[in-house]
Amino acid sequence: MTREEKSGRLGGAFLLIGVLLLLFGSYLGLAVAPRERFMGDVQRIMYVHVPTAWNAMLCLTAAFVFAVAYLWKGGWRWDCRLEGALEVGVLLSGLLCVQGSIWARPTWGVWWDWDPRLTTTAVMFFAFLGIIALRSFVDDPAQRATWAAVATIVAYVDVPIVYFSVRWWNSLHQMQSSPATVSPAFYLPLRTNAFGMLFVMAGFITLRARLARRRLAAQLAPPPALTRAAS
């Protein structure tokens, strides 16, 4: 089996496990879990929102690790993984912002709340979107890889600073706490969905890295005319 087939199967398996877990977890969250006392049924959004939040952060952390690995150890595979993690991270953080505003509307009566976590996610969404744009504007593969890795490190280091600055900035408002997702009846759908989202994320990164690898190979390969002349 070639490396490419291997990563295809691995990604597909991750995706399948993740989707099954997400279906089961969402069934638990929507139909089985009891109604929360104060938040009512709206609290059920948490079963998909919180797992997305954890995994979006995890995905950006993975991007940071891949970027450091590329700069220190080198190797195109880290660049391909970085490309995958960047795109999936932007996808998840964008999704998180949408979920967050759907959550904010019935609970606080507004579409956006300047909660430090949600705001940090929005800032990171745009920061990492900029890095994806950077990748598409640089043609030389080596330059693209190095610059994207540098920009990823610079942006990731900003996460705690943005978080604290928004927190202080918004400290006059009452800190809005999440509803209680700590009692045992709420654990199971939350954890099932968290693992489901984790597998979906891993599958997406694997498959996207495989796509990046194939594109890169086509770009690095000598033009077809040269190959034909040589053979």
Partner: peptide
């Protein structure tokens, strides 16, 4: 600006 603005939010 696309790269710099989100970064300098703090």
């Amino acid at each position: 600006p696309l790269l710099l603005f989100p970064l300098v939010v703090p």
